[in-house]
Simulated scan of single mutants.
Amino acid sequence: MGQKGSSNSSSSSSTTTNSTYNNHSNTSNQTKTTQSSNNSGNNNTSNNTTAAASTTTTNNTSSTTNSVKSGDEMEKLYAKYAAMDVKDPDSEDDVDYIGTEGLLKLAEDIGINPEQRIMLIMLYKIGATEQYKVKHKEFVDGFKRNNCQSLSDMKSKVSSWEQPITSNNTEFKKFYVWCYNYSKEPGAKSMSCEMASATWRLLLSDRYKKINEWCDYIENTYKRAIQKDSWDLFIDFVHNVGDDLSRYDSNDAWPVIVDDWCTLLQKKQ
C-alpha cells in the first residue's frame, strides 16, 4: 500500500487524449498422406518402412512450408504498417517499428476502434512497451503468441480479447498496471495528470461511476503528476470501495490522493 505524506513530482509530458491514437481464423493445414501396400509377403516390411518414412517426410515438409507461409504473411504485414510512418534512416532507434499511422491503419484493417479500450488491450496482449510504437519483434512474436499468424486471424480474434480481461478483477489489474508504463512519456518517472486523467476515463468508465468527477478533481484540484504507487492503488480502491464510501477506512494505507478524494466526497454527503 502507499505511504502518506509524500508529494508527487511534476511531469513534463504534454496534454493528450488517450484515445490510444486519434481516432482465415487460424488456418489449420492438414497433410494428406498415402500409405503404400504390397501384398507380396517378403516386401511387406520394406514397403511399410518406406511408406512411414515417406509420410514423415511429407508431414515435416508440409509443416515447415505452412510455418514459412505464416511467418511470411506476418513479416509482410509488419513491413506494410511500418512503412506508413516516416522514419529517420540515420537513427537505429527510429527505424524498426510501426508508428501512429501504421497502428491506425492496423486498427482499421482489424476492425477495432482505436479510440476505445480494445486498442490498449491489443497492445497489452502483444507486449508493446512504448506509446505509439510497436517494434518488429513485439508485432510478429506478440501476435503469434496469441495464435494470430495472419490478418484474418487478427480480425477473428482481437475483438474477443477484451471480455476475459474486463470480467476478472485480477486480470484487469494486470492490464491496468501495464497501462501506466505504456502511457507515460518514455523515460519519465511519473505520468502527467492530464494523461492520467484521459487514461482513467478510457479504462474505468464502466467500472467506477464517479470516474468523471475523479478526473475533474485530478485535473482541476490536484494538478500534479501521478506516481506509480498512486496509480496502482487506485484500482484497488475502485474494486474494493468504489461508490460505497461505507467501505472506506481512513486507517487503511491508501495514498494521500485517495484519502483527500474520499474526504471531499464525505463532505458532499
Score class of each variant (00 low, 15 high):
Trp161Tyr: 09
Ser159Thr: 05
Tyr124Leu: 10
Leu106Tyr: 12
Gly187Pro: 02
Asp85Cys: 02
Phe143Met: 11
Cys193Arg: 07
Gly99Trp: 05
Asp93Ile: 06
Ile110Thr: 01
Cys193His: 13
Glu171Ile: 04
Glu92Cys: 01
Gln163Tyr: 13
Lys87Phe: 14
Phe139Gln: 08
Lys105Met: 15
Ile165Pro: 02
Asn113Phe: 10
Ser192Glu: 12
Phe175Gln: 05
Leu103Asn: 06
Asn113Lys: 10
Lys133Ile: 09
Thr100Trp: 07
Phe175Glu: 04
Lys144Glu: 14
Gly102Glu: 09
Asp96Met: 07
Val140Thr: 13
Gly111Pro: 10
Arg117Cys: 08
Tyr97Gly: 06
Ile121Ala: 10
Asn181Glu: 11
Asp96Phe: 10
Phe139Ala: 08
Leu123Val: 01
Ser190Glu: 14
Leu104His: 08
Asp94Ser: 14
Lys184Arg: 12
Ser156Val: 12
Pro164Tyr: 08
Pro114Asp: 00
Phe143Ile: 05
Ser91Arg: 13
Glu115Met: 07
Asp88Ile: 05
Met84His: 07
Gln163Phe: 13
Asn146Ala: 00
Phe175Tyr: 04
Thr166Phe: 04
Gln149Tyr: 14
Met191Pro: 06
Gly187Lys: 02
Lys189Gly: 13
Trp161Val: 09
Glu185Gly: 04
Phe175Ala: 04
Tyr176Val: 00
Asn181Lys: 08
Ile121Gln: 13
Lys135Thr: 07
Leu120Arg: 09
Val86Phe: 10
Leu120Asp: 12
Phe143Asp: 01
Lys173Phe: 04
Pro114Val: 01
Ser183Asp: 09
Tyr180Ala: 00
Asp153Gly: 04
Tyr176Gly: 00
Glu185Arg: 11
Gly99Arg: 08
Lys133Met: 15
Glu130Asn: 05
Lys173Met: 06
Arg145Met: 14
Asp96Ala: 09
Ser159Arg: 09
Ser159Asp: 10
Ser183Gln: 11
Asp85Tyr: 06
Gly99Asp: 11
Lys133Thr: 09
Pro89Lys: 11
Pro186His: 03
Cys193Thr: 11
Arg145Asn: 14
Leu106Phe: 15
Leu104Ala: 10
Val86Ser: 12
Thr100Phe: 09
Trp161Asp: 07
Leu123Ser: 00
Lys184Leu: 06
Gly102Ala: 11
Val95Arg: 13
Ser91Gly: 02
Asp141Met: 10
Ala188Ser: 14
Asp88Cys: 02
Ala107Glu: 07
Ile126Tyr: 12
Ser152Gly: 14
Glu130Lys: 08
Gly187Ala: 05
Met191Gln: 08
Glu138Phe: 04
Pro164Asn: 04
Asn146Cys: 03
Gly111Gln: 11
Lys189Glu: 13
Lys125Gly: 06
Asn181Asp: 15
Ile98Glu: 00
Glu108Ser: 14
Ile98Asn: 00
Gln116Pro: 00
Val158His: 02
Tyr180Asn: 01
Phe175Ile: 03
Met84Ser: 05
Phe139Ser: 09
Glu92His: 03
Tyr180Thr: 01
Asn169Trp: 02
Arg117Asp: 07
